[in-house]
């Protein structure tokens, strides 16, 4: 449920190419990255965009492959919208917004083939590495999509494989090797938000509460598009989409500078 007074104010303000926090329509808030803050995780990252803060952890385990991909590792992404992070979040099993967030982040990673899953096969049909990406927003001040995707990317990049005892067929969780995950790509997610006829990047919560729609675009290092997702009730024109694809490619170069 939006706020009609604030919606009207934001629509007018954005139509004049202005934002309440003084940014231009195509700029992000300050971005800060902390690499591997969680000792227990194989890899982790804390991403801060303005007042939005997301903690992402990567855990590795050994399990059975899916029957249709017997020689490939398994990627599982999950997001927990903890009530700790916003007065709007409720405790309980993940609801549609949490599931969408995890799936949009997952799609960019999966479709860009960021992780070389075949290299994660230990024994075909029987044992493969499983990569768990867990996304925990700590403070939701808008644009969890881009913050979470960047966090997942950096956590994966810094994740070290735990030791695997082949004789005992057991993972020794507390012993990390020096080996990193086999990675081939670095997909960056850019999400555009629309209020009225204005389209802008990196919505803060006050803006995000009033949006008509949004679109997330995952861009690879080769400047190809790996995944997209349009969300909420409003619409985009073909012309808008074409221009946003172009803008996402440009903007992804800027975001790449934060990858550590």
């Amino acid at each position: 449920m939006g706020n009609k007074v604030i919606k009207k104010y934001l629509t007018e303000l954005l139509s004049k190419d202005k934002r309440e926090d003084g940014r231009t329509l195509d700029s992000y808030r300050d971005i800060k990255i902390e690499v591997n803050p969680i000792i227990r995780a194989n890899g982790s990252a804390k991403v801060t965009i303005g007042k939005t803060e997301v903690l992402v952890g990567v855990k590795l385990d050994v399990g059975e492959p899916f029957p249709d991909t017997p020689n490939q590792g398994v990627l599982i992404s999950n997001a927990e919208l903890l009530p700790l992070a916003s007065p709007k979040f409720e405790s309980g099993p993940p609801r549609p917004p949490a599931i969408e967030l995890a799936r949009v982040v997952d799609r960019g990673i999966r479709e860009s083939k960021m992780i070389d899953l075949e290299k994660l096969c230990i024994k075909e049909k029987e044992k493969v590495w499983m990569v768990f990406i867990d996304i925990y927003p700590l403070n939701d001040d808008g644009n969890l999509f881009d913050a979470s995707a960047l966090g997942a990317l950096i956590a994966l990049k810094n994740a070290k494989m735990p030791k695997y005892d082949e004789k005992e067929e057991k993972v020794i969780y507390e012993e990390l090797t020096k080996e990193y995950l086999p990675l081939t790509e670095e997909p960056v997610l850019c999400t555009f938000y629309k209020i009225g006829s204005s389209i802008f990047l990196d919505a803060n919560k006050k803006e995000e509460n009033e949006i008509d729609c949004r679109i997330s675009i995952a861009v690879t290092k080769k400047n190809t598009i790996a995944a997209m997702q349009k969300g909420e009730f409003g619409t985009f024109t073909e012309k808008e989409i074409n221009s946003l694809i172009e803008k996402a490619i440009q903007k992804s170069k800027e975001l790449r500078k934060f990858i550590k």
Partner: peptide, 17 residues
């Protein structure tokens, strides 16, 4: 009060919830 452990807070991944 709700006490919760993040999935990556323990040596073996802790199932969320």
């Amino acid at each position: 009060c709700i006490y919760d452990m993040a999935s990556f807070s323990t040596p073996e991944r802790n199932r969320p919830g």
